[in-house]
Nucleic acid binder design. Sequence first.
DNA 1: CGAAAACTTTACGTAAACGTAAGGCGCGGT
DNA 2: ACCGCGCCTTACGTTTACGTAAAGTTTTCG
Lengths: 144, 144
Amino acid sequence: MTTEPTIGLSSNLGRNDTQTFSIGQLADEFEVTHRTIRFYEDEGLLSPARRGTTRIYSNGDRGRLALILRGKRLGFSISEIREFLDLYTVDETQTQQMNYFADRVNDRLLMLDQQMEDLKQTRQELVQIQDQIKAHLAKSDRSP
Amino acid sequence: MTTEPTIGLSSNLGRNDTQTFSIGQLADEFEVTHRTIRFYEDEGLLSPARRGTTRIYSNGDRGRLALILRGKRLGFSISEIREFLDLYTVDETQTQQMNYFADRVNDRLLMLDQQMEDLKQTRQELVQIQDQIKAHLAKSDRSP
DNA sequence: CGAAAACTTTACGTAAACGTAAGGCGCGGT
DNA sequence: ACCGCGCCTTACGTTTACGTAAAGTTTTCG
């Protein structure tokens, strides 16, 4: 049982689970449009099998799509996600590429920390504004 | 001395602090291009004074630019930022509209809190990914 | 069997946020 | 007088991530 070592979610990406899906099923499940899924294929993020011209998505394809969408939620661009998927897919012993991956994640974390800072400050300012409004309303309440 | 009542940050946004800036100075300070600053003006986010055709930015303008860029870092669109700036800018002489204003600020705060939550979760996921990468790298370090 | 549903390709459209010339003006220094 | 620098406007170009027809084929259901 050569359970290939993989990173995180990729563990169920290469496996064949006999289950297949249509584009519509995946679109429904993940709440995206057909167009979106085909777009990811155009971009080389997915390459489902075909029966005639119709796309047949394997369980692995479904997993890839899940990863793509998660990448999006995490704020990565399509081309970044493409590179990540390549890292997941291409043999994972390429330490050199792994470092690149780590760097991108790190970049993203720095950005998120910056965003957190900004949010805190903005929040504080808005609360102050709110207080001033309350004060103002209270004042003009007493003297109509 | 009719110090017009203003709200929150606008107190130092409308004030004249005698200090002025050229577009290049602001571009340098905030590390954006001239084009970017002019773009914000086209979008109605800034309206600096002019000497002839040359733009003269006041201290208030500088503050607005800072707010704009923070909004961007927070992932708001230009039009959202425009609304946001309006919140800072509006003068509070119409008590009637104040309630609406308060509601808007409140909306914004709720959104910010939601965004905070999302960021925290995203951050956590990324840190986990990072840990897995580190572990992976450490392992392949010991067995070259 | 025939209509509707689900799939396909091709391809132009769009919104956001600037980038990037191209061409011109005014000013301080040499 | 001339150079370069910083500023100006106008305006077309670019990228991202799809949206949106249009028009055809294939599958499925009553």
